[in-house]
Design a protein around this nucleic acid. Structure first.
Lengths: 153, 153
DNA sequence: TCTGAAAGCCGATTCCT
DNA sequence: AGGAATCGGCTTTCAGA
């Protein structure tokens, strides 16, 4: 499934990751090419699903989302049905920004962004009432030191 | 520091979070307004720092980044100087996508995206050679269940 | 596959309500 | 402060090499 990407594609992606609002001309100049080829390559990478989407990133704190938790979850249930319901619960909750199934001792990790601790508790209570969870540890963020979605191409 | 945001602003941000490549006209129609006010509001929110940046999100696996780790870090050093060097080390390493300082038992959590386990080990060795770290636990992701940067406005 | 040019749409500004 | 109209520029397309 890994698509062929050459050096020029990589440079283009690098540019777009930094700032997707720049004009084709600017990008073309920076990567040492010209508009049309750059445009064609971007289109192809969009179609191939390499470029997933184009979004804005917002300042969470400025919008009143002052609390961020990483939640470590252990479960005793490992049946298909439980997993399906758990997954649906996560997808239905917009405060869950990330969810990964893990290898080892801890089964899942979530990143949860909420206005305050009370909102986290509401989320937590709602979650454990929907699906059975064996053990939960919440790690409260005091400070976001670094945050990027950029891949090190 | 929390800026005044009304219902219309919130709708606009919601639109942009979903797809920032849409035209002003489309957004204006969807939020029930027209181009000029929408444009002015977007500009203001950019200036206010509410809209931080505009980027593309890339498919990490399609680009060969098959491994994702959450790294839990305990340290015995809590001096200013140590913290400064640790922070610089994190910022210098592009494979670190997120870094948070935590409250409680565990001091820091990192999200690290790399091509494979070997690359993670290289990162890990480099990090502990630069700064003294008391205890490290790496959680290996088996599956990315959910991933979004969108805030639940 | 890249270059160059042409067409049409969109972002940005201005004026009017 | 929102709506309409305008202009310039950029995206997008299409020949041609």
């Amino acid at each position: 499934m890994s698509v062929r990407i050459d050096e020029l594609d990589r440079k283009i992606l690098g540019c777009l990751q930094v700032d997707a609002s720049r004009s084709l001309d600017e990008i073309a100049t920076e990567v040492g090419s010209s508009k049309t080829p750059v445009w064609n390559r971007i289109r192809k990478m969009r179609e191939a699903g390499i470029i997933t989407s184009q979004t804005v990133t917002l300042d969470a704190e400025a919008l009143g989302f002052d609390a961020c938790f990483y939640v470590l979850i252990r479960t005793s249930e490992h049946e298909q049905d439980w997993q399906k319901r758990f997954l649906e619960a996560l997808n239905a909750r917009p405060e869950v920004q990330e969810a990964h199934r893990l290898a080892g001792d801890i089964d899942y990790i979530l990143k949860v962004r909420v206005p305050n601790a009370r909102a986290y508790d509401a989320f937590y209570q709602a979650l454990i009432s929907e699906v059975k969870i064996h053990n939960v540890t919440a790690l409260l963020s005091m400070e976001e030191i670094k945050s990027t979605t950029a891949l090190p191409l």
